[in-house]
């Protein structure tokens, strides 16, 4: 069976000089959610606009339900695609109330399972239904626009930074509800965001766009634990890369930390010099250990502290410590690390 939605070797044009090249990914099943992650200005919005048909593509192919929407020679107008796009900026019709805006779809609700009142309730829009777009806040406009998109019953829903203007306190609640709605209605969705936690939470699959290409497209777990390139590591801010030498099929050695054991995600020949991904949770605190480094920074993160240690070779290492841990360390203190060091999945480049 063919994929529900597919992008094949497509080049997206951001501007005359800027393009995102050779993007391929697919959504196998109807109802799946894909999140595209990447720093701002990288062309994520352009990709959404191209999928929606607001921009043309010059190379590649975009298909939905087996029908080609865009290719070098084909371009189906946006109004004939059944794809909804919720813009980042306010795109409500300024002369209609929020309620009228939400109900303005020109398409039939043939799925028949969309209960707009429920959506309105979930998105907390009841109190502003009679307001005009200029009378509501940016976050409210985003939610109203989301409701409008949902109500148009699209085959594919595209959300461009859907919650960027929603208050932080309200954001997680909405994320949960959003996921519930999308799953309940089985609406296939592509969400663009720069917030990796949002992407990992919402997405069945995550794509990371960096340097004008799709670097990685995988399950959130895999993207998180097995980033496939240094760039992805840096973008996700997952940890640090330290120099190491592969000493056996199950171990490496680092000048500061000594031997590290674990399972290589990808086999590396013995004797290769690599950069090892070291994540904060990989190291354990142990006051009794004689492997000690200076603390140079300490961040309180609620449930945990993240200590930054400086090694003898001037590498900086992050270490997680649960915040209930009795023994706290201050800057310039010595900080012990438990030996031997074992990392479940060894990611190195």
């Amino acid at each position: 069976m063919s994929n529900f939605f597919e992008i094949k070797n497509t080049t997206f044009r951001i501007s005359d000089s800027d393009k995102v090249r050779n993007v391929s990914f697919s959504i196998e099943q109807e109802g799946d959610i894909v999140c595209l992650l990447g720093p701002s200005g990288i062309g994520k919005t352009t990709i959404l606009r191209s999928i929606a048909g607001l921009e043309k593509i010059s190379e590649g192919q975009i298909t939905l339900k087996g029908k080609t929407l865009s290719s070098k020679d084909t371009h189906i107008d946006p109004e004939h695609r059944k794809i909804a796009l919720s813009f980042q900026e306010n795109s409500l019709f300024p002369h209609y109330t929020v309620e009228k805006n939400i109900n303005l779809s020109a398409r039939d609700n043939d799925r028949g399972n969309i209960n707009i009142n429920e959506i309105i309730k979930i998105l907390n829009l009841e109190n502003i239904l009679n307001h005009y777009p200029h009378q509501i806040s940016a976050g409210e406009a985003q939610r109203a626009s989301l409701a409008r998109s949902l109500n148009s019953n699209p085959d594919l829903l595209l959300l461009d930074e859907p919650l960027s203007n929603v208050d932080q306190s309200f954001k997680e609640e909405i994320q949960v509800k959003l996921k519930q709605i999308l799953k309940k209605l089985k609406i296939t969705t592509i969400i663009v965001t720069h917030d990796s936690y949002e992407a990992f939470y919402l997405g069945d699959k995550c794509g990371v766009i960096l340097d004008k290409e799709l670097k990685q497209f995988d399950d959130p777990y895999n993207v998180y634990h097995f980033p496939n390139s240094e760039k992805v590591v840096k973008f996700l801010n997952r940890g640090v890369l330290i120099p190491a030498k592969v000493t056996s099929p199950k171990s490496l050695e680092n000048d500061d930390l000594g031997v590290i054991t674990g399972n290589f995600v990808n086999p590396v020949p013995i004797g290769t010099n690599v950069k090892l991904l070291l994540q904060p949770e990989d190291l354990q605190h142990d006051d009794k250990s004689n492997l000690k480094f200076d603390v140079i920074d300490k961040k309180f993160r609620g449930t945990s502290f993240i200590y930054t240690l400086k090694t003898n070779t001037n590498n900086l290492l992050p270490v997680f410590v649960h915040s209930h841990h009795v023994h706290q360390h201050d800057i310039n203190d010595k900080f012990g690390i438990r030996k031997p060091i074992h990392i479940e999945h060894i990611v190195c480049f």
Partner: peptide, 13 residues
Amino acid sequence: NISVDESAYLLGY
């Protein structure tokens, strides 16, 4: 906003 037009297209207008 021009995105208003685009929204309309996307809503099937």
